[in-house]
């Protein structure tokens, strides 16, 4: 016989979350409710004398199938809420009516059946299941093998992207940079070779010309740079105090 309390727990645990399929907006919430349904069904299986199946249900459905659903939901964007507005007018009600009709029909025909369940019977432990599986159903098992190959091949065909461009190592990246005429190493720091080491002064190259791109773009956009003309003027003016001091230093040597 079947435990009545368990039945009602299972019924509540499966029907209510499964209604989220119809009314919940976020797919992730739906997926999590279906996980609950699967666990409830596993409990039902154990209660119906199928402990092996109960465990398989947990492993396969909550462990693999529903996690895969969640994974794909994450992939396509969890936040995508669904627009429940119907596009074909009245379709919603036809679908509702059809499904309720189906439910009523099924319940009516099933409710009419009166069977006396056999009280004793084999329990679906792994051992008896395995015996029967490989005695009576061994061909089905073999065909299932082909089914699994098909699904693996199919998933690869539809989702696997092979390497389409040659692999780029660090050496290739560096070579490409040099070829493109970019700086092979760091950009020059602003103001390093100049007489003035503020961030807003371009550095000077060995010929004494300013290197414009050594100054941050941001400062240029804000017009907060100096072009260095003032300092060049200093350089060229022999009477400038700074120059004098320098030359004195030179004399001291």
């Amino acid at each position: 016989m079947v435990n009545e309390v368990l039945f009602w727990i299972v019924a509540v645990m499966t029907v209510i979350p499964s209604l989220s399929l119809l009314f919940a907006k976020r797919p992730v919430h739906i997926a999590m409710s279906i996980v609950t349904v699967m666990v409830g069904l596993a409990a039902a299986y154990v209660g119906l004398g199928a402990p092996f199946l109960g465990v398989v249900q947990i492993v396969v459905y909550t462990g693999a199938v529903m996690m895969m659903f969640l994974f794909v939901l994450m992939l396509v964007g969890v936040d995508s809420t669904e627009d429940l507005k119907e596009t074909i007018k009245g379709q919603k009600w036809i679908a509702f009516a059809g499904s309720i009709g189906l439910a009523i029909l099924l319940i009516a025909v099933i409710g009419k059946v009166t069977v006396q369940p056999r009280n004793e019977g084999p329990v679906g432990d792994p051992y008896p299941i395995a015996i029967q599986l490989f005695e009576d159903y061994v061909l089905v098992m073999e065909v299932l093998g082909f089914l699994l190959i098909t699904s693996a091949v199919g998933a690869l065909v539809l989702t696997h992207v092979p390497r389409l461009k040659p692999r780029r190592a660090q050496v290739d990246v560096a070579k490409a940079r040099v070829l493109a005429g970019a700086d092979p190493v760091n950009k020059p720091m602003p103001g390093v070779y100049a007489r003035h080491n503020a961030l807003d002064i371009p550095a000077l190259d060995p010929e004494g010309k300013p290197i414009e791109h050594s100054v941050s773009r941001v400062l240029k956009i804000r017009s907060q740079t100096q072009d260095g003309a003032e300092f060049r003027a200093q350089l060229e003016d022999p009477g400038h105090p700074g120059n004098v001091a320098e030359s004195k230093d030179g004399d001291d040597k």
Binding site: V15, A44, I100
Partner: peptide, 12 residues
């Protein structure tokens, strides 16, 4: 019967 209800919810 529970199975029939779940089946109908799924089909809906």
């Amino acid at each position: 019967i529970l199975a029939a209800i779940l089946f109908s919810i799924g089909s809906a």
